[in-house]
Amino acid sequence: MGRRRLVLKQRIEDSTFDLNLAPMLDIMVSLIPMLLLSIAFAKLVVLDAPVPQPVANAIENDKKERTVMLQLHLFNNRTAKLDIIDKGGRRSNISFSSKEGTYDLETIHQKLIDVKKMHTQVFTVEIFPEEGVAYKEIVAVMDEARSARKEEGEFQFIDKESKQAVKTKAMFPNITFGNVIEG
């Protein structure tokens, strides 16, 4: 009985071994300095905001068949106004009051969704910030105008080339500064 136990213990001892961790450690020591050098603590993203050249702008405007123009004015007192100008030059507008000392981003977003639902072929909005508006606020407004959120569904429009219905979350991804050239 005693001998059997001894044999069993011997077998268990034989089946255990130490994993050689040195090569693994070598790899890690090589990888860590390389990764440390390429680490990015801040991730840069970009928002497209092409500014049309004056002449190019005029030509483009002639070429483009813009059915509806949207102009979003951001005022220094943190109120805003959305001008909707149709092809015939008829103008209607929506005003936004400020909220807690800044722009009412949620209301602006919701109204832009309503406008998008009415004009699904429009993807451009011109923004006209006044001089005292902070860059941070401009970016926040652009974020609200660019696309709908996950829970807000998609917008359907007819692709002119394929005549197919296309669904998209994009609202007004083409955002330009309308007042850069003004004095």
Binding site: L44, A49, V51, E131, Y135, F177, V180
Partner: peptide, 25 residues
Amino acid sequence: NYSTIKKVIYTSMLAGYADLKMGAA
């Protein structure tokens, strides 16, 4: 403020840099 940024965008545009990409985090 936009007044500062506007001047930079405007000058860049006149120098031939019209395709603005706004950097954000």
